[in-house]
């Protein structure tokens, strides 16, 4: 009986059931807080035709950039995707579809997905290209755009600092970013973490993602590459 124990022992098990043309949501902001090992495993499985929802698309050779290299992504949905050259090529040649979405709208759409809210109104993007073809409505003296939630992801891949064996998650600093909402929006949510502790060891007051949202937990190994290392001169 596995009971509520979510811990899996290898990446094979962590991504069991992944196949072509699936919808994936992947946590992280730039290279901060990305599930590095899970992305590598998606790359190794060679699944293709993926739709990826992620704020960014990694850099050349790292993060989701790895999936771009192997042409595994058919559609990329994010708010800022241009930190790598290959992305540019795939985008301009039309080989990959790109749906740019304002960052707050992206986060809220994912949150709505996890919370069972089919759509919501937001002022973001009213009067811009983003609102073209979408329903708008006036509330008070302002116009708002109707934005729909996404379907639940086949796999939500997130990175957390600490998990307990039941899948309760705690993030570290700004490595939380999109991970918290993406964890709620998967049919199968897999958390790759720096440390796993026995259930009962985490302070219930400090948990960011309750274990109900998390299906699998795997101990990861992280390079934690820094995109823009900026230091002050003394």
């Amino acid at each position: 009986m596995a009971g509520l124990n979510k811990v899996v022992s290898n990446y094979e098990e962590a991504l069991a059931g992944i196949s072509d043309n699936m919808l994936l949501m992947v946590g992280g902001f730039g290279l901060c807080g990305i599930p590095e090992g899970l992305i590598q495993k998606v790359c190794d499985t060679g699944v293709k035709g993926l739709t990826c929802i992620s704020n960014n698309a990694g850099v050349d050779g790292f993060g989701l950039g790895k999936l771009l290299e192997k042409r595994q992504i058919k559609t990329m949905i994010g708010s800022y995707v241009g930190e790598n050259k290959l992305f540019e090529e795939l985008f301009l040649s039309g080989e990959m579809e790109v749906i740019l979405t304002p960052q707050g709208t992206l986060a809220e759409k994912i949150r709505a997905t996890g919370a069972g809210i089919p759509a919501f109104y937001t002022a973001t993007g009213y009067g811009t290209k983003i609102a073209e073809g979408k329903e708008t409505k006036k509330f008070g003296d302002r116009f708002y755009v109707l934005e729909e939630a996404y379907p639940k992801a086949d796999f939500s891949l997130v990175k957390a600092h600490i998990a307990d064996t039941q899948g309760n998650l705690i993030f570290n600093k700004t490595a939380n970013n999109f991970n918290q909402v993406i964890a709620t929006a998967g049919k199968i949510t897999v958390a790759e973490v720096e440390k796993i502790v026995p259930a009962g060891e985490l302070d219930p007051d400090q948990i960011h993602v309750p274990g109900i949202y998390v299906n699998r937990v795997i101990q990861g190994k992280f390079e934690k590459r820094i995109e823009k290392r900026t230091v002050r001169s003394n």
Partner: peptide
């Protein structure tokens, strides 16, 4: 590496800082 700003630069926190997820931020 876990503490960056929206420009993806490494930063520090100031007194009274807090962290939260992207949907709370927006």
């Amino acid at each position: 590496a876990d503490l960056i700003n929206a420009g993806k630069q490494t930063v520090t926190t100031s007194t009274g800082a807090s962290f939260f997820d992207s949907s709370t931020s927006f």
